[in-house]
Nucleic acid binder design. Structure first.
Length: 278
DNA sequence: CCACGATCCTGCTAGC
DNA sequence: TGCTAGCAGGATCGTG
């Protein structure tokens, strides 16, 4: 599942190879639903001949800026990958969009589950409105203890649910939420407003830590995630709780528990992460 | 504000 | 071995 570290890793890979490249053609759209606001022909007509001027990330959205204030946003949801290949490389299954560049590089959007989405924007304002309607502050760039404390104030929902809410904080998904809560020793079901000031500080630091380490390890390849060059990350070798139900907590040895919160499995240590605690 | 359930998809796995 | 049922998950929308 691409979350912030996986999107950031991909953005870095694409930036190194695509900045300054000019679009030769856009095609391969075989599932129109994945591009809800443009047809393949519109994508091609809008982007052909334009240079890539920036690659950015906001939350889990990858953003590509072209000349003439044109933009693409890509959300990979669960199984989507963006891969750089040469145009004559062997085709890959589940490819739903191909962008060819002047130097022979081909950017492929590959997504077995077809949940991913690509959107075209014709101005920065359109893009900013789209993102503002969906995303809160970025959990890597904007997060600090004071901001988190202010946002948590008065929120009675479970802390795990809040961390998964992209309008609350953008970029955290199920895996990094579980890892951050374990690191901060906070039970995922704790009502957000019940966290002490010290606990909020631990959480802010833990979120930053798991995201930064995730990026240093080039993402978590738990299932299908690959970077722009098709390589797996390494963070899956360092997980403390996610997907480790029944295995010993690395801190105290207690078997890791699993429970469902907001329709999603949560992994935590029942001893280190008490429901009634500071 | 908050919880819950349904929806979208298909690869994978557990179980028979 | 071969089949099937169910799970996995991010975002969005509807209901209570």
């Amino acid at each position: 599942m691409p979350e912030l570290p996986e999107v950031e890793t991909t953005a870095r890979g694409l930036r190194a190879r695509l900045l300054g490249q000019r679009v030769r053609s856009v095609g391969g759209v075989d599932w129109p639903r994945m591009v809800p606001n443009a047809s393949e022909a519109e994508l091609h007509e809008t982007l052909v001949g334009l240079q890539v001027t920036a690659i950015d990330r906001k939350g889990k959205y990858l953003l590509v800026e072209f000349e003439q204030d044109r933009w693409l946003s890509v959300h990979r949801k669960m199984s989507g990958n963006l891969l750089l290949r040469t145009a004559d490389a062997a085709p890959e299954a589940h490819t739903h969009l191909e962008i060819d560049f002047d130097d022979g590089t081909q950017l492929r959007f590959i997504d077995a589950r077809k949940f991913g989405r690509v959107n075209l924007f014709r101005s920065r304002e359109e893009l900013v409105d789209f993102l503002a309607a969906r995303l809160g502050p970025d959990s890597l760039v904007d997060l600090d203890e004071g901001m988190l404390a202010a946002k948590i104030r008065g929120r009675r929902g479970r802390i795990k649910s809040l961390l998964l809410d992209q309008a609350f904080l953008a970029g955290i998904g199920n895996l990094y939420a579980d890892e951050a809560l374990w690191e901060a020793r906070i039970h995922p079901s704790r009502p957000a407003h019940s966290l002490s000031r010290v606990a909020v500080r631990r959480l802010a630091r833990a979120i930053k830590q798991v995201l930064v380490l995730g990026i240093e390890r080039r993402g978590t390849s738990f299932s299908s995630y690959r970077d722009a060059d098709g390589l797996a990350g390494e963070n899956q070798d360092f997980l403390n709780v996610y997907g480790r139900t029944g295995e010993p907590c690395p801190r105290c040895g207690t078997p890791i528990s699993r429970m469902v919160i907001t329709q999603r499995s949560s992994h935590f240590c029942p001893k280190c992460q008490r429901l009634l605690a500071s």
